[in-house]
Amino acid sequence: MIGRKPKKTALVYFSLNGNTDYVANRIAEEIGNQADLDVIRLEPKKPYVDKEPMKFVKGGAAATFGAKPELKAYDFEPKEYDTIIFGTPVWAGTFAPPLRTFMLAHKLKGKNIALFINSSSGNVDKCLAKLDKYLKKTNLIATLSLVDPLRSMSTEDLEEIRKFAREILENKE
């Protein structure tokens, strides 16, 4: 469309122990030069416990019971973006609560959505199904699932990240 300002891409994620942060940075490196990209790391006003075993107990309970933590301020205006990349660790079979807060706070209808999910088990089906409930009326364009990327990033994982980035870029054209 002539005169239409190209829309941007937002990479929105939560990371407690660095896995999702690591992958978000790799994705940003892959698409940052080719897309107008804004990176938004979600941070709860009240930080989660990050020491075992309480991080599993408290984080798992928050995820299971649908907590919506208050977030520190971030800059996001939905109408500026046509594509949103969400990143989350798997907590108790679902996504981290800060994403729930974000998704409920913003109208995402009609947006292109890409999801990257990090887990310890590799089983992300339940998490994807729960995310699907919050992303109705959006266009899912790409998914990526990695297992403990900080501990075991392989050349295959890096290639999967590149493939994920290409899928996002192809859907922006």
Rank of each mutant, 00 (worst) to 15 (best):
K79R: 14
P69I: 07
F116K: 06
K55D: 08
I84E: 05
N123K: 14
D132N: 13
D38M: 01
K111A: 11
W91V: 06
A62N: 12
K46E: 13
H106R: 05
S15C: 09
F14L: 03
A63T: 10
A105F: 10
A63H: 07
A114L: 01
E77T: 15
R41G: 10
E173V: 11
L104Y: 06
A63F: 13
I117G: 00
L144R: 12
L11T: 01
K130T: 12
N17R: 15
K107W: 02
F65K: 11
T155K: 14
K109P: 00
F65D: 00
K172C: 01
I40S: 08
L42F: 06
L11R: 02
P98N: 10
I141F: 05
D148A: 14
E30C: 10
L169N: 03
K46G: 04
L37S: 10
I85Q: 02
T138Q: 01
T155A: 14
K79N: 14
F102G: 08
K133N: 08
K8R: 15
P98C: 13
R41Q: 15
F164P: 03
I168W: 09
R166M: 09
Y22R: 06
D148E: 15
G93K: 05
K68Q: 15
G32N: 10
I2T: 09
K133Y: 08
L128Y: 13
A10M: 04
T101N: 11
E30M: 02
A165T: 04
E77M: 03
A142E: 05
K137V: 02
L140D: 03
I2K: 15
F56N: 12
N123C: 05
D125P: 00
A114Y: 01
F65R: 04
P89S: 11
P44Y: 13
E80P: 01
A92D: 08
I40L: 05
D125Q: 09
W91F: 11
